[in-house]
């Protein structure tokens, strides 16, 4: 993966697999305008990033209403609305997950997009969506850090920092936080030894 960055600090993530990549658009902060010529992977990623962002914004709004409608007054007067809100929150989660699963199984994007989604999701989990905490933690713990795709992904640091940020801010006592941190630490230490050995060989 590569990051395209302009002078005004706008950025876009690109796959540089194709030999000659061509991009047309107005501004990197306007993903609707970005079209890659002859690059299914990059166009898919832009589409997923755009739709995930729309879904997440909508989900935040529905969760706000869900909390508001948990008051006894609404339970009594608007039970159908409460049910609709919960259904839509669930539908959005399914749509996001399906979009990631539908990426071609043999593509780099099939591996990369869920990782990138986790990276961008973790701060939001702490701020607005604490119900996601167990899911984000489980997803991190299931990651195979020895996967060669990590080498050029640029995701390692953000994934690890994001995970520790989650643990530190999940509102549990420190001893519990340390215990949670230790669960994946031996594997991460082994991974760093693996990296050091690669560096040594080079």
């Amino acid at each position: 993966m590569t990051i395209l960055k302009t002078q005004d600090n706008s950025t876009a993530i690109l796959v540089l697999g194709e030999e000659k990549l061509s991009l047309k658009g107005t501004h990197l902060k306007q993903p609707d305008s970005l079209i890659f010529k002859n690059s299914t992977e990059n166009n898919s990623f832009v589409k997923i990033a755009k739709n995930t962002s729309l879904n997440n914004n909508a989900s935040s709004a529905w969760r706000y209403l869900d909390k508001l409608y948990s008051a006894p007054y609404f339970k009594e007067h608007s039970p159908k609305v409460i049910s609709s809100i919960k259904k839509e929150i669930q539908s959005i989660a399914v749509r996001n997950a399906t979009a990631l699963q539908n990426l071609p199984k043999d593509s780099y994007m099939h591996w990369y997009a869920p990782m990138q989604t986790l990276v961008s999701q973790m701060p939001n989990t702490i701020r607005n969506d604490r119900e996601r905490l167990p899911k984000d933690i489980a997803q991190f713990r299931a990651i195979d850090f020895t996967n060669a795709n990590f080498k050029t992904s640029g995701l390692l640091q953000e994934l690890i920092e994001g995970h520790y940020f989650l643990l530190e801010n999940m509102g549990q006592p420190l001893d519990s936080v340390y215990a949670q941190m230790n669960i994946r630490q031996p594997l991460l230490i082994n991974f760093h030894h693996h990296l050091l050995s690669i560096k040594f060989l080079i």
Binding site: M1, T2, I3, L4, K5, T6, Q7, D8, S10, L14, L16, K20, L21, S22, L23, K24, G25, T26, H27, L28, Q30, K151, T152, S153, G154
Partner: peptide, 18 residues
């Protein structure tokens, strides 16, 4: 990579790998 980003005209642009 080549292309056109109209609203970034005149700005510097870079590509970073990992």
């Amino acid at each position: 990579l080549k292309g056109q980003l109209k609203n970034h005209a005149g700005q510097t642009i870079s590509l970073t790998g990992f």
